[in-house]
């Protein structure tokens, strides 16, 4: 555990909680892509199946349970409790265009051709693109609430910090995982355009809106 890994995890946790609180406090999930949230729930479910097979640390187990619990709570709020506020018309990204290729790729390129390892690989690949429905939704409506942009910033920052964690681990532990690194780079790159808008607009007190 190094500082990048820890702050990355905390940034991830912050993102998840910001989103849950935003929906809960405003009693609305307007502007939030339910499809991205379903994909994240699927990511955590397929990645953390090792909760049943191996114990790593109390920290590891607790964080996994919190991530999974929050992911399903978010999906529940969007599709059940506050369903009336869900903006389904603008959440029109075709997720099968992500899930099917990612499923194929995880069967083809993995560390070990075993069910748990393939599901772990699937979750890594899927996470890298799971935010696309949300970004697509923002590009479609042309705007995002400021709290939603804080959520996206924390979520993007998390994977960027993991990249530094992997650089650290490569130098000091000789550890590297090519699948996680390549997917992590892809994931971080997808946020770059958003990071730019966040710094140039949101941090200067403006609302994030895109030119028509």
């Amino acid at each position: 555990m190094n500082i990048f890994r820890l702050t990355g995890d905390l940034s991830h946790l912050a993102a998840i909680i910001i989103l849950l609180l935003k929906i809960w406090k405003s009693r609305s999930c307007a502007g939030i892509s339910g499809k991205s949230q379903i994909l994240f729930a699927l990511v955590f479910t397929t990645r953390y199946l090792d909760l049943f097979t191996s114990f790593i640390s109390l920290y590891n187990t607790c964080m996994k349970l919190i991530y999974i619990g929050c992911a399903y709570a978010t999906v529940y709020l969007i599709y059940a409790k506050f369903r009336a506020t869900y903006d389904g018309n603008h959440d029109s990204f075709r997720v099968e265009f992500l899930v099917v290729p990612v499923g194929g790729l995880s069967v083809l390129i993995n560390h070990d051709f075993s069910p748990l390892e393939i599901l772990w690989t699937f979750s890594i690949y899927l996470e890298s693109v799971a935010i696309l429905p949300q970004l697509f939704m923002i590009s479609k409506t042309g705007e995002a609430e400021t709290i939603t942009t804080h959520y996206l910033f924390c979520l993007g920052l998390y994977r960027a910090l993991y990249l530094f964690n992997w650089i650290w681990r490569f130098y000091f532990e000789g550890f590297f995982d090519m699948i996680a690194i390549v997917a992590g780079v892809v994931q971080t790159v997808l946020y770059c355009d958003f990071f730019y808008l966040y710094v140039t607009k949101v941090l200067k007190g403006k609302k994030l809106s895109l030119p028509a």
Binding site: R5, D9, H12, R47, D50, T53, S54, I56, S57, N60, M63, K64, Y67, H111, D112, L116, E117, W120, Y162, N165, G174, F175, F176, D177, I179, A180
Partner: peptide, 10 residues
């Protein structure tokens, strides 16, 4: 090395 189970990262 390769990161095969167990995974310590989240």
């Amino acid at each position: 090395g390769l990161n095969i189970n167990p995974k310590d990262e989240l």
